[in-house]
Each structure stands twice: as structure tokens, then as C-alpha cells.
Amino acid sequence: MKFGILINEGPFTHQAADTAYQFAKAAVAAGHEIFRVFFYHDGVNVASDLAVPPQDDRNVTDNWVKLAEANNIDMVVCIAAAQRRGLLDANEAQRQGKRADNIAPVFRISGLGQLVEAGIECDRLVTFGD
């Protein structure tokens, strides 16, 4: 089955991104396809590669990066939500005249249309948030 996953909360404050990760891992293990993971609201913070969690804790962003790389998952960060919250890729940083970019590899920034498309194309859209 083809799954779309929507993540509405950032790492650590809420469990949402962790639950979604465990769900995605189980879905892939069961032979399902993850068509796309879409990060919205504070969920865009999962894409920051500047986070440095303590070594004895899980690294939510790394978990997602590894899962996405191993399974070729399309990881999309909502551009409007990301810009509000200071999440920029190299192109956007340059375009907006900002001094740094902070999107981890594997994630790409795009519009909300990508979420709607996931809703249209997937058999199920599963939401995790607060």
C-alpha cells in the first residue's frame, strides 16, 4: 500500500515525529511504500541539521535521514511554514539574503501542493501531530 505521512510537530517537545518514525519504519518493514513524508507547522523543525541532542538521546533528524536514505523516501518541508520558522535551504538563504542555511540533506523545501498531491496519490494519509 502507498502511504503519505504528515508530521505537524517538531522534535522533542512532542512525540509526534518519533511516533511517525516508528510507524514509517514498521510500514517499510511490512513492504509498504512511503510515497512522501510532509513536514508542516512546527514539524518543519525536524529538518534542521543544526540540532545537537545529548549523545544518550535519540537524534530525531538523523533517524529520519537514515530511514529516508535507505528507502528512498521523498521528504518535503513546507516552504511557507519553514520560512516563518527560520528553516532555509541554500537557495532560499541566498534569495532572502540570510547568512546561513540549515536544511539537512534528504529534505527538500516545496509548497503545500505536495501535501495535497500526497493526499490524492496515496492510499492512506496518516497524520501525526499535537
Partner: peptide, 30 residues
Amino acid sequence: FMFINRKAPYGTIYALESLEVVLITAAFDQ
């Protein structure tokens, strides 16, 4: 597509950002 709005405005951003998804979904003729 059904959007279920369960949160008050201003105290959190959910209502506003939900509305943005609603508008885009309509633009996709859904």
C-alpha cells in the same frame, strides 16, 4: 478532502495554517 478544525485561533497557529492547506486543496480542484 475534509478538514476538521478543532482549535481556537491566535493562541496557536493551527487554524491559520490549516486554512492555507484548505485553499491549496481547492486550487487542485478537489
